Amino acid sequence: MMSGIPTLLGAPYDASSSYLRGPSQAPPRIREALYSPSSNLSTESGRSLAETTWWHDAGDLSLSSSVTARADIEAGVATVLRADGRPLVLGGDHSVTYPVVRAVAAAGGPFTLLHFDAHADLYDELDGDRFSHACPFARIMEEGLVTRLVQVGIRTLTAHQREQAARFGVEVIDMRAVAAGVRPQVSGPVYVSLDLDVLDPAFAPGVSHWEPGGLSTRELLTMLQAMDGDVVAADLVEYNPLRDPTGMTGMVAAKVLKELLDAMTR
């Protein structure tokens, strides 16, 4: 589908959040944690982010207007793709995934979307907003942008979202299934969308929506490391620094970021 160097791109947008603002402040805080002297830049496989020949940081998009934000995000990701980059987008709320996926799909070739989250984000609309952070996967599936949607860690399905999942043929591996030993099986080109609230709040309290009963950090990292697919793009969203006074969730985000970058080079 596409080659290229993993490239970070910040999308500091949270105007489509339904509960709390704050994720727009996440990209610089994740970078701050990444470079914290309390840790180091090595992935668990031994690859070092200190070596910048294998990955790139394109900085943050300027998203001054919520009216044009989706178009600006899509255009920014398209720029990364034209420069032979594999985008890893730092949100922002989960609404950013829709324009990112649009740009990746336009670059050519079918792919699977592997989505880690407490929430299915399949609402047709929420509070009158069809582009809410609770709706991106409904928009993605309506437009036929991916060949397969696999959701992992879900534990908040409403009746409406169950209907939506059935309508779109979504493969939902909820937390009860995870507890029973089910793991995602993906191959070929894969886009990974990772909402930090897939983790239990005990591991990542710095998110807007606390939903008990989630993955441990270790379980998530193991799933990322076990992926067989070719990770052509990814996003890491919904870190809310305003709910992270100790910075612990920022360090979790940085750890996940390192392993995502590593997965994009396998």
Results as ranks from 00 to 15, higher is better:
6 P>R: 13
14 D>S: 09
200 D>H: 11
134 A>P: 14
145 L>S: 14
265 T>K: 11
38 S>N: 13
95 S>F: 05
175 M>D: 00
206 G>H: 03
8 L>Q: 10
177 A>F: 04
184 P>N: 13
236 L>W: 04
92 G>I: 13
143 E>Q: 12
238 E>T: 05
131 F>S: 09
119 H>P: 12
169 G>T: 04
127 D>C: 05
136 P>E: 11
41 L>K: 12
223 M>R: 03
149 L>A: 11
245 P>E: 07
181 G>P: 00
165 A>F: 04
159 A>C: 00
48 S>W: 13
71 A>V: 10
52 T>M: 13
8 L>S: 06
171 E>Q: 11
3 S>N: 06
133 H>Y: 10
39 S>C: 01
35 Y>S: 00
167 R>I: 11
177 A>S: 05
88 L>V: 05
17 S>M: 12
21 R>Q: 10
254 A>N: 08
190 V>A: 14
68 T>C: 00
143 E>L: 08
62 S>W: 13
24 S>T: 00
61 L>H: 10
248 M>F: 10
11 A>H: 01
234 A>H: 04
108 G>T: 01
6 P>C: 07
120 A>P: 10
249 T>Y: 02
51 E>M: 05
58 A>E: 14
260 L>M: 15
117 D>L: 03
25 Q>T: 00
177 A>V: 00
209 H>R: 12
16 S>H: 15
236 L>K: 07
44 E>C: 01
172 V>C: 08
209 H>N: 14
86 R>T: 05
43 T>V: 05
35 Y>P: 01
138 A>Y: 12
41 L>R: 12
140 I>N: 07
65 S>R: 11
9 L>A: 04
196 L>F: 13
177 A>T: 03
199 L>D: 02
183 R>A: 10
166 A>L: 06
44 E>L: 08
29 R>Q: 15
201 P>M: 00
38 S>K: 15
176 R>V: 03
241 P>C: 08
24 S>Y: 04
254 A>G: 08
146 V>S: 09
260 L>W: 08
113 L>Q: 14
89 V>F: 02
103 A>Y: 09
97 T>A: 14
136 P>T: 11
58 A>S: 14
259 E>W: 12
100 V>H: 07
65 S>Q: 11
29 R>H: 13
210 W>C: 01
47 R>M: 09
122 L>P: 07
